[in-house]
Amino acid sequence: MAQKKAGEVDAFLSRPDFSFPIILLYGPDPGLVSERAEAIAEKSGVDRSDPFASVLLAADEIEKDVGRLYDEALTVSMFGGQRLVRVRGAGGGKNLAEAVASLADKRLEGALMIVEAGDLKKSAPLRTSVERSKYAIALPCYQDEARALDRMIDEEMASAGLSLDRDAREELKSRLGANRLASRGEIRKLCLYAYGMERIETEDVAAIVGDVSADAVDEAIDAAISGEVKKLPGLIDRLVEAGTAVFQLQQSLLRTIQQLQAMREIVERQGEPVGRVVERRRPHFRRKAALETALSAWPLDALARVGRRIEADILTSRKESAMALTVTRQMMLSIAVEAARHRRR
């Protein structure tokens, strides 16, 4: 099976094996997926400024016109040499998965295809078609862990000729992680802020670095489910400015609503206290109060209805990608308003 484990991906990136002309990168952090795809593209040797040699396609466009992918993948370069085809925003689309499976049956001649996808389940058609193929490889990309964050911080600090004291490093790490590109951008912004200094301290981090950690996503989700209507717009704006992907907000919200639905069923049908049900889930202490508030407020039927609405809005966002942020913002605000009404009853 043509796939790598998450811990093996860095080694592959250092020396990409182009005997696999179709490379799928997938994971929950779009920034990390994009950064790794860019690293492979750079090492391919293709001139990406040449429109005849390099092409970028959107997955939703391929779903509407799958022939475009075949045309680009099978076209021979006019001036010789390899062509590069990159596909961004892949997910559960049927046409793309079938096309990749078909193209991977035989070795692509004269073309390298890089497909960037979201967090694909094991059963996802796109992932399974690549993993089963002889001429394609799947590379899982997961969110930065502490070691990866430290390595990225060290790279940027060394490049800028700066150093961090221990407390400043811990403060910086606490604000990073939800999006690889956004995290690197925040570090570079900090280095620019500290130009001319020798050492960065905690106060410098607090002054300039935005919060792009997973905790910031959780804070926005908790505000929505617990009815913090006034607080929510600012949290959404902060995440968007930090580069957090819209689908990450959508999936986190849907997952939390589904968890609340399962917990509320225990409360209503088995009569267990809200506090005990939440405690059994072992949530982070910062989330506990919001979960208890939401679980006390939302009735089971309302949670089921909201879950269906989120799924419908996610589908709308994928069909109309330009409207994804507007749809998600409106969805979260309306859920917060409804949560606030339930709390007052």
Rank of each mutant, 00 (worst) to 15 (best):
A97T: 10
L74S: 05
N95G: 08
A37C: 15
S317N: 02
V76P: 03
R199D: 12
L260N: 01
G7P: 04
L84E: 00
I137A: 13
A104G: 00
A242S: 13
R238E: 13
A182Q: 03
V87Y: 05
L253P: 03
E268V: 13
K134A: 15
W298T: 08
N179L: 05
I23V: 14
L172S: 02
D144W: 05
E8G: 08
I208F: 05
G161F: 08
T328I: 11
A214Q: 09
P51D: 12
N179Y: 04
C141W: 00
D144Y: 09
R238D: 14
C191A: 14
S129D: 14
P21Y: 05
R318P: 06
V205I: 15
M157A: 08
G177C: 06
R305G: 08
L260W: 06
L176Q: 04
F12L: 04
E201L: 08
P299N: 12
R287W: 01
V306Y: 03
D211S: 03
A324H: 02
M323E: 13
L32W: 01
F247L: 13
D119L: 13
A6Y: 04
D60R: 13
K230A: 11
K173L: 10
P233S: 14
E42S: 14
R238T: 11
M152G: 01
A58M: 14
T256G: 09
G31R: 05
A194D: 11
S183L: 11
A136K: 04
Q330I: 05
N179D: 15
Q143L: 14
E279D: 07
R15H: 07
T75R: 10
Q3T: 11
A182S: 11
E156R: 11
R132Y: 06
V205C: 12
Q259L: 09
G110N: 00
D65C: 06
A136D: 05
A297C: 14
K4D: 00
E35W: 01
E38D: 15
S34M: 12
V66M: 01
F247D: 08
D167M: 02
R345C: 06
R169M: 12
